[in-house]
Nucleic acid binder design. Sequence first.
DNA 1: CGCAATATTGAGCGCGATCAAGTATGGTGG
DNA 2: CCACCATACTTGATCGCGCTCAATATTGCG
Lengths: 248, 248
Amino acid sequence: MTLAQSSSDFMACADCNIRNRAVCATCEPHELSRLEDIKYYRTFDAGQSIMFEGDEMHFVASVVSGAATLSRTLPDGRIQMVGLLLPSDFIGRPGRDAVAYDVVAIQKVTLCCFRRKPFENMIKDTPHIGQRLLAMTLDELEVAREWMMLLGRKTAREKITCLLSLIGRRTASLHMQKLQDGLSFEMPMSREAMANYLGLTIETVSRQMTALRKDGIIELGGTRTITIPDLAGLMAETGDDTDGMMLT
Amino acid sequence: MTLAQSSSDFMACADCNIRNRAVCATCEPHELSRLEDIKYYRTFDAGQSIMFEGDEMHFVASVVSGAATLSRTLPDGRIQMVGLLLPSDFIGRPGRDAVAYDVVAIQKVTLCCFRRKPFENMIKDTPHIGQRLLAMTLDELEVAREWMMLLGRKTAREKITCLLSLIGRRTASLHMQKLQDGLSFEMPMSREAMANYLGLTIETVSRQMTALRKDGIIELGGTRTITIPDLAGLMAETGDDTDGMMLT
DNA sequence: CGCAATATTGAGCGCGATCAAGTATGGTGG
DNA sequence: CCACCATACTTGATCGCGCTCAATATTGCG
């Protein structure tokens, strides 16, 4: 029944790299083994759709590796991304039959999937999972609201610098780099994806990237390789209060 | 210790008008009586601040009546509202010491407050509350994401018609009006509040309201009394898929 | 190498912001 | 009851950021 879609057929939860950040983070060993019974892995290539808005939701999942986006589309074709899914993030909404957003892989993605019904039952009788999911959902809500500020009130330059600073710092923390000396990373998304995430057009994204390069705020090696010589300088352009954020 | 701030000192939960929609909706009688022990009412006048961003959060609360807003402010003063709190909505984030947004009453508001620590303990040992809070938070997340689409991709006219349609339909459902023949309601917020909610300026809001009036989409009697002769006509201007939304 | 997809650059325009008056509206005290 | 003032809202003139349309350049891939 459970069709293996991937080469990595099985991995023990104990060995999982998102073990202590995902929805299963606070599970006891016996809870974990129940999850282990209903989980299965799937992978999707960059560009592949994972779920379509309006479809029936057969499974929920944790992102194990790679990246995906949540987006909505207006009848006339305008697109707005409403979420970025990175390792340990949760996909799907318990208690809802239909998918509310398009979910698309922007890098090769591995998911740890749970069939929806068994997972919903586990929420009911496993408080740890429900509590963890609540905390994660509250975090997502805060991220969404910070993004509302960006979309509603920030200029194009501020939007771009916010995104670069976000991705840059996240990548650095993943690789334990220190932030002081030049930070280098790969952008996980195309110019079009950036535009849809920031509420801009491709052309404006491109122009602002060029402007930031000319101003010495960033350096580009290929379109997706970005170097930030002075992170504080970049963050001074975001419009945010920069105090205390350098600690992360 | 618990200082009564209001004339309505006490109300039995059983008689509460948000009893079956708020965070307490799925509570059993014994759980409800525990909540009843730690609850107290407070009222705030229109314009009064309820919480300030960064302050310590002493209590969480349900909105019983009236309306309040959540907003964030950039260092240079730009404001973006990130949430609208109406009766049955929940204020505060369990497990977090500091308030993440400014909370301001935009109408006279009555809150059903719970001191934070006792409430957090109840979440741990009362699954019904945690589950209800999870469902409500997921709903809020969906609303926030729909608002991201509005802020990032919609025109000023679409933004205004979305807001009017939202408030109008909600008011109608509260008063059990049928939607077909002219719908009339009071706008609960100023032009400035509308602007901050929609990511626009006051002037643009005002101009779009005038334009909609001249186009016969809305009628104005005083600045806050709004009549919508043809709701379908208004909704055709929102940019959304209008199918199926008229049922609500 | 050749093609397709992606990104950059340019010219011009228009939507919504800004700056600036002007007009209700509502509360207060004489 | 009305004159007064503060606040909220509307309207007008102009500006400029980001969009549109269009051409060119670059990248990635068979």
